[in-house]
Write a protein that binds this DNA or RNA. Structure first.
Lengths: 350, 350
DNA sequence: CACGTTTGCCCAAACGATTGCGCCAAACGT
DNA sequence: ACGTTTGGCGCAATCGTTTGGGCAAACGTG
C-alpha cells in the first residue's frame, strides 16, 4: 500500500484521477456488486481500471467502506479460554469458514467470568462487529440479557442457554446416553459422573443424558455419585478422588470431558486402579489425545470444527435477518481400551 | 448503540447538537489526548459533555477514527495452528496484553503453508492493521521477504528467522542444552532426538543446543539419531518407532515438544518399554499435561504467556518507530519421573 | 425522423471522527 | 489605557468509500 510511483495515493480517487474518471465509476467496477460491475463501465474502461488497480496493488480501505455502509464484515467471538483444545478447535472451524466468506474475527477469552463476559461484549460491539458468536454462554444466560445485545445478531456455539437463542451444539444429551448405553451393555451397575461445571450446558446435558438413561434402566444414580468439577485435568483428578476413594467405589466413571477424564486416569493410577480392568472410564470430545493415552480412552466424538463452521453460517443468516433453527450435531461413541471388558451381563432394558 | 431517545444518532455530532456545542469540542473532551481533555473546555462544559455521552452510551466509531488517523489499533497475528496448546497459550498472552492496551487482534492459521502465509499477511494488511505478530516464521524467512512487509512493523514470536527481524523467543538452544546436561548427569551415552520440523527454529535450536552439549561432552550424536517429525503426537510416535525399534536403541530420548513426547511415550509402550526405567524421555514446553501424564514427563518450561505479552510490547515499540532488541526468555528444566534414575556415572565433562 | 431506452459516465452527499487554525472576550501586565 | 495572554470554543477540511440521481450520447423501434 502507499503511493504507486507517485500520482496520488492508491485509493479510488487516485485511480480515478490517473484515468480521468470519476471515483464512483471506479468504485462500481472494482468493488460494486457483480451486477453493477458489468454495467458500470464499458468493457474497455473496466479493463483499464482493473489493470491499473492491479498494478498499483489497490486494496479497498475497509474503514472507509464500513463507515459508509455500516457493515464491517467483522464478527466477535467469545470463548472461556482459547488454550483449551476443544475451544481452539471450534475456533479453527469458525476462522476457516469466516475467512472463506470474507469475514474477519475478533476472538477473546472471558474465563467464564460474567463481568468479563459483559465487558468483552462491550468491547467487540464498540468495534462495530456485525454479529457475535458466543462460546461461553452460561445456562442462565446472564451475560446475554444485557441491552447491548438487543439488536445485535448472535449465535451460541458449543454451549446453549436456557434463555433460548439460536445455537449450534453437539447433541450432548445423546452423547451422555451413548456412554450410559455402553456402560449398561458392559454390565456396570454402580457408576458415577464427573459432571463439569453446572453452568455449562455441555457438562449439564451430558450428565443429564447419562443419568436419564440409567434411570430408564432402573438404576437411578444417587446424587453423591455426580460430582461437579472444572473441565481440566486437576478438576477431574479432584472429582475422581472424591468418587473413587471410598468403599462403595463405582465400577465405571463418565467424565464429561477428555481432560477431566485424564485427571481421573491419574487419580485412578494413584489409587492403584487399572483402567479398563478395575475401572471403566469414558470421556467426551474425542480429543486427539484420547486415542494416544497409555490406556486409550473411550470417548464421545463431537464434530468440533463443523460446529464452528456451522455457527458462522447461522450467524450470517441471522445477520441477513432470518431466524434459522438451532442445530444439534450428532455425536458418536468411540470405544477404546479404557472402558474395558464386560463386568457382567448386559443391563440394557431395551 | 443507536439513537438516544431521539435527537440524532449517538455520535459526536449528535451530542454536540443536543448541547449546542461544536463536534470538535466534544471530540476533544471525550476522545482527545489527556492534555487536551483538560484544556478543551471549561470544567462545567466538560462535565455536561461527559454526562450526556454517558447517558446515551456513546462509543466512538473506530472506523471513522481510523479513517482519519490512519491508525487502526488493530494488530494481525499469524500462527500455524491455534489448536496447538503452545500456540494457543502464547496467543492468550498476546490477547491479554493487547486488550489491556486497547488493541484488538485478528488471529489466523496458516498451517505452515507458505502460500497461505503470504495470503493471510495480505488479508490482515488489507484490514489495515498497525502491525503484525508472526508466530509461524520459517527459518528461511520465505514469507517475510514479500514487499508487503516492507513498511509494516512486525515482530516474530516463538520462532525466529535467519533473516533477522525483532523476535521474542524462548532460549531454545539453552533449553536443549539443559536437557543434554540432565541426560549426561544421568549417565546416558546413547541418546536420540525427535527434532521437529527443520524449518521451525524452535525445533532446530533445541536440537542444536542438545547435540552441541553432547558434542562438547565428547559424545557426538550421529545423524541417524536425529529424526525430523511433526510437532504432534503422531509425528512423535513415528519418529520414536524409527529411533527405538532397532538393536542399538538409545537409552534416552529428547523430544523437542511435549506432544511429540507423548507420541514417543505411546510408541515406547507399544514396544514394551517402560518410561523412566527402559527409556528416559524429556519433552519441551512443560504443557499442563506433562506433569499429569501417567508417567510424569520431564520437560523444559518456557514462559509462553509472557512471550505473547512481550511480543505485543515490542510490537508497540516498533510501531512507535523504535527498533528494540529481540528478547530471549529463559527456560527452566522440570525434572520428573520420565527421565528416570541414573543409568551410570555422570558424564559431565565440566 | 421522432421518441423511448440503454449505455456510460459524472455529481455530490453522506458516514463519524480528528485537528490545525482562528476568533472573541476576559484577565493580565505595565 | 492599551497591548498581550489565555481560556473557551467554533470552522472547516480531510480520511476513502458508497450510492441515489442525473445527463448526454448512442441505439433501437415504429
Amino acid at each position: 500500500m502507499g503511493r504507486g510511483s507517485e500520482g496520488g495515493p492508491v485509493t479510488l480517487r487516485g485511480i480515478a484521477e490517473r484515468l480521468g474518471l470519476d471515483v464512483s465509476t471506479v468504485s462500481r467496477v472494482l468493488n460494486g456488486p457483480p451486477a453493477e460491475r458489468e454495467r458500470a463501465a464499458s468493457q474497455e474502461t473496466a479493463r483499464r481500471i482493473r489493470r491499473l488497480a492491479d498494478e498499483l496493488g489497490y486494496r479497498p480501505n475497509p474503514h472507509a467502506a464500513s463507515l459508509r455502509t455500516r457493515r464491517s464484515n467483522l464478527i466477535g467471538v467469545l470463548f472461556p479460554q482459547l488454550s483449551e483444545i476443544v475451544v481452539a478447535t471450534i475456533y479453527e472451524g469458525i476462522e476457516a469458514e469466516a475467512t472463506e466468506r470474507g469475514l474477519s474475527t475478533f476472538v477473546t477469552n472471558t474465563h467464564d467470568d460474567p463481568a468479563l463476559q459483559r465487558d468483552r461484549i462491550g468491547m467487540v460491539l464498540a468495534r462495530r462487529v456485525d454479529g457475535l458468536i458466543i462460546g461461553d454462554a452460561h445456562l442462565d444466560g446472564a451475560a446475554l440479557k444485557g441491552p447491548e445485545l438487543r439488536d445485535v445478531p448472535f449465535v451460541l456455539v458449543n454451549r446453549r442457554s436456557d434463555l433460548g437463542g439460536v445455537s449450534v451444539t453437539c447433541d450432548d444429551r445423546l452423547g451422555g446416553r451413548l456412554v450410559a448405553e455402553h456402560f449398561l451393555a458392559l454390565g456396570h451397575r454402580h457408576v458415577a459422573v464427573v459432571a463439569g461445571k453446572p453452568f455449562a450446558s455441555t457438562g449439564a446435558d451430558r450428565t443429564a443424558g447419562f443419568t436419564e438413561r440409567y434411570r430408564e434402566a432402573g438404576l437411578p444414580i444417587p446424587a453423591e455419585r455426580v460430582s461437579d468439577s472444572s473441565f481440566d485435568i486437576a478438576g477431574g483428578r479432584r472429582a475422581a478422588l472424591e468418587l473413587l476413594d471410598r468403599p462403595d467405589r463405582p465400577s465405571a466413571l463418565f467424565a464429561v470431558n477428555d481432560f477431566a477424564a485424564i485427571g481421573v486416569a491419574g487419580a485412578a493410577r494413584d489409587l492403584g486402579l487399572t483402567l479398563g480392568a478395575d475401572l471403566a472410564l469414558a470421556g467426551f470430545n474425542d480429543t486427539p489425545l484420547a486415542a494416544e493415552l497409555p490406556v486409550a480412552l473411550t470417548s464421545v466424538r463431537s464434530p468440533m470444527t463443523e460446529q464452528g463452521r456451522c455457527a458462522v453460517r447461522l450467524l450470517l443468516r441471522r445477520i441477513a435477518g432470518e431466524t434459522p433453527e438451532s442445530r444439534v450435531l450428532a455425536p458418536r461413541l468411540m470405544v477404546r481400551t479404557s472402558s474395558g471388558d464386560p463386568v457382567g451381563p448386559p443391563l440394557t432394558s431395551a
